[in-house]
Nucleic acid binder design. Structure first.
Lengths: 192, 192
DNA sequence: AGGCTTGGCTAATGACATTAGCTTTTGAGC
DNA sequence: GCTCAAAAGCTAATGTCATTAGCCAAGCCT
């Protein structure tokens, strides 16, 4: 190997710091290269292109979120676990808002894998509810949708009245928990 | 007035068609100009810049979503209204996936107004539950978070097992409704 | 007719991503 | 220690955008 300088991981490190400090829109190869003390095209030796860098960064972030959540869920179960999961998710988002909004929307396989890991944690947290397999998957999706939806809106919409957002989130947690405890509904046909 | 050709509205029309046909990433001033049969800089006579075009487009889309939802909620109340609202939201997203993903995240005031109109519809749908004012606001936020979160994940993640997404969504609707009917929880402190 | 306003155009600039092709470093094996 | 091939860097070039400046034509009002 030559010049023990950069590596794909190191590039992602730099990108992560950049996003933290200047927001996800500042994520350009030029900016990353500059921070890394390297010319822009040199990055291509470590990363296929900008899209791949975004994907790698998303994986890094999702894994970090994963870690925090699984730590928080450890040793808890049922309602307690769900509460911990959702609260930790939101805390992560609020602590690193730029990271969360840097998450890649485009469906790269690597990113999907990190997403699956997240789903597995949710399934583990749901185990205490004695759901059938498919019911557990539905529940996990709901958890994800709920946490993600609130996160996105809170980050880049701001809502208004910021002092009450905790209460809104508590209500949402309450909806999830009571919904899980109440017998599943018959599937309803489309409205209209 | 000269040359009765374009207008801000017409530009948004073109942009909307472009997004529908080629996806939200294809939304560039160059592409819009080309479709409008005009040179790129000419667009600046109608629109301040790309950011404003995005904002105008978002308003257009949010208003359309608003219309569909308020139509669906008309004449229904309580659980029925909530179900109609959420179902219509998802139907809109699935019918026009590109439009929904073209929605602007950056907080322009005009876009926020359109968002408020949406919140008002939700508050109307919630009226039957006899919530206090602030409780209704929390509930509306939850509705929005839930619908948006599921929409975003469904659009650009795809989940897997597409045949069961209806059931997942039904579960989420169930969570919302039972959560609204069950007494509000005491606010819980942060976990950990 | 004359002139202002409006909407359109061409040209120029600057930020990016990306590719091509050259050079240097360095580690592995001799 | 020497050689050399791969790795990692660089400069130069291209193409796509957004955006600005400055020019021109067309229509409307008087």
């Amino acid at each position: 190997m030559a010049r023990a300088a950069l590596s794909a991981d190191a590039v992602v490190d730099v990108a992560l710091r950049l996003v933290d400090e200047e927001g996800s829109t500042a994520l350009t190869l030029a900016a990353v290269a500059s921070r890394a003390g390297v010319a822009t095209p040199s990055l291509y030796k470590h990363v296929r292109n900008l899209a791949e860098l975004r994907a790698l960064l998303s994986v890094r972030i999702l894994d970090e979120l994963n870690d925090e959540i699984s730590g928080a869920v450890q040793g808890r179960s049922a309602d307690d676990a769900i509460r911990a999961l959702l609260t930790t998710w939101r805390n992560y988002v609020l602590t690193h808002p730029h990271r969360y909004s840097a998450l890649d929307q485009s469906p790269q396989p690597q990113v999907e894998q990190a997403g699956e890991r997240l789903v597995n944690i949710m399934l583990a947290a749901l185990r205490a509810y004695d759901l059938e397999d498919s019911a557990a998957i539905h529940a996990a999706r709901c958890l994800r949708a709920v946490a993600h939806g609130f996160a996105v809106l809170e980050i880049d919409q701001g809502f208004q009245l910021p002092e009450k957002l905790n209460e809104s989130y508590d209500l949402m947690i309450h909806m999830v928990i009571t919904g899980l405890r109440t017998p599943a509904p018959k599937t309803v046909g489309p409205v209209e």
